[in-house]
Write a protein that binds this DNA or RNA. Structure first.
Lengths: 297, 297
DNA sequence: CACCGAACCGAAAATATCTTTCACGAGTGA
DNA sequence: TCACTCGTGAAAGATATTTTCGGTTCGGTG
């Protein structure tokens, strides 16, 4: 490949060139085969390589020796390393959108990459002061409501599940009407969290507004820091928005982003309430163990 | 080098973590030695590694098998490749566990990093053949059931929501009894997907088993490729297991990992059914727009 | 042109390495 | 306590690698 970079691959090819003159014909054949396809040769045994090059095992070993290895075994090991390097050196550079005809392996790589990007962006853009304030409010809350619809609804449930696990009182009403009904019960000292990517989901804004007006501490997790929902939010946590394509709707990355924020909230609260959170976590873990068929050693 | 893809060793370390639970003590010792020092182990013969870990050759070979190689020879080759990559790719910063007194900014950074790691490990460990098979089954399914409990239940709902959006028929029964009731309705040509990190959640295994016995195509998304659930799974999709700490339970990373797998399934199916998926996606997007108060600039 | 010597080469023996088998012993449930 | 399973390593068996050794070729020489 790129010999100019002085890659080890180059160094092997160079070594072959240097030593070729001092090689016998058979050995040259072996050396060339090795230089041409390190990866392929790494998969072969002495016998295999001997056959491939139309020579004998002895010649292969002799060649390996000449190239500076104690024997074929070590040459083979070096070859495997080389192949791996060449493999990784090949820049994946995933810049394109997912296409309809992308092979499945590309889909996996691209999705993973995009989500990693989203995580990095979210972490970079998160306002730690706002996050800290939200954590403080949650840690001291009498009860907490989390509102979310659709994909964000799942995130709301995720947060609720986590908070319950550390002994806090949390609800994630799925039905918008229930949400409002819940919200009007809140008062100062309670916390309401709205999760909406667009920031303009009425079904989520309404309950937050109700909670806000009754004096609860309100938090918005949204991708639009200037959207409607932030009007009624004491603390705004911004999620990242990544490029979206037809096959990868925004909902996908916003979910990843929201979950990271939610995890941060959870861990922050767990830290603050460690004395009570730790045993509660342990207890819920213990309780679950019994639901499993066997200990799986 | 793209560090965002995780350290090259990450894939092996991840594999060790994933499979460690299904390993015996001796095998774990071998696996740990290998994960800790790939380069060093690559220089050893079976006998050498057996002595180093205080075990026998047989155990070393068994471990190699479990890690997915035909024998020790191939593991050793892979190790050599890994060592070479690490050499050139210089290990990225290793973050410590989240501590109780970490400032909130550190929490954000560490969580984001861990999740990125998890994504990279998952992508690296995902069997694209199995994934492709699962996608094919889904794309042609008459109907699809997705089973999951607790945190995995949310992932099940996420997948269901997505599939519905592209016009497929999918259900994610939340109640275990309902799940079994649903499952017995399935037959050949239908698909059942079970999502469970531990692989031993009875409430999820039962419905999958019912579906399996009735001839439906079954898929398991689990972090334990050798667990009970895989008995009844035609296709097994493995999620990565990352280091867990007290403040970051395994559930957190398993969710990230599961979601990536689910996204891959979704995109794969959307590709295959593009003709019908694209307009369906557009339609659901359109429908949602009406639920938003305003366009918000 | 026949012969010699040296280098080259590969078949096969010798050795090292890897894989499989098997039986022992610890731990477990009845 | 007993039967039984499972994990384990010793050793036999199978492969792969290295070494040995004799045949062959080729260039030079009498």
């Amino acid at each position: 490949m790129k010999e100019s970079f002085g890659s080890p691959g180059g160094s092997l090819a160079a070594k072959v060139r240097t030593l070729a003159p001092s090689m016998t014909r058979s050995m040259q054949r072996v050396a060339e085969a090795v230089a041409a396809d390190p990866a392929g040769c790494a998969a072969l045994t002495v016998t295999g390589l001997a056959e491939l090059t139309g020579t004998s095992e002895a010649t292969v070993v002799r060649t390996a020796r000449l190239l500076g290895y104690p024997g074929y075994r070590d040459l083979r090991l070096a070859l495997a390393g080389l192949a791996a390097q060449q493999q990784s050196g090949r820049a994946p550079a995933i810049t394109t959108d997912i296409a309809v005809d992308d092979p499945i392996a590309d889909v996996v790589a691209k999705l993973a990459y995009e989500e990693q990007q989203t995580l990095a962006d979210t972490a970079a853009g998160l306002d730690t002061a706002q996050l800290g304030a939200a954590v403080a409010a949650l840690a001291g809350a009498r009860r907490t409501d989390v509102y979310g619809i659709g994909a964000s609804g799942l995130v709301a449930q995720d947060l609720t599940q986590k908070l319950l696990r550390i002994g806090l009182i949390a609800h994630a009403p799925g039905d918008p009407h229930l949400a409002v009904t819940n919200a009007v019960q809140l008062r100062s000292g309670d916390v309401a969290i709205a999760i909406t990517h667009s920031g303009s989901t009425g079904d989520v804004i309404e309950p937050l507004r109700a909670a806000f007006e009754r004096g609860a501490t309100t938090v918005a997790i949204t991708g639009r820091p200037n959207s409607a929902v932030t009007q009624y939010a004491d603390h705004v946590l911004t999620t990242a928005t990544s490029r979206e394509s037809e096959l990868r709707p925004a909902a996908m990355s916003s979910r990843t982003s929201q979950l990271l924020v939610v995890d941060c909230l959870f861990v922050g609260v767990a830290q603050r309430t460690y004395e009570s959170a730790a045993p509660a976590l342990a207890a819920s873990y213990e309780a679950l163990a019994h639901r499993h068929r066997s200990a799986q050693r």
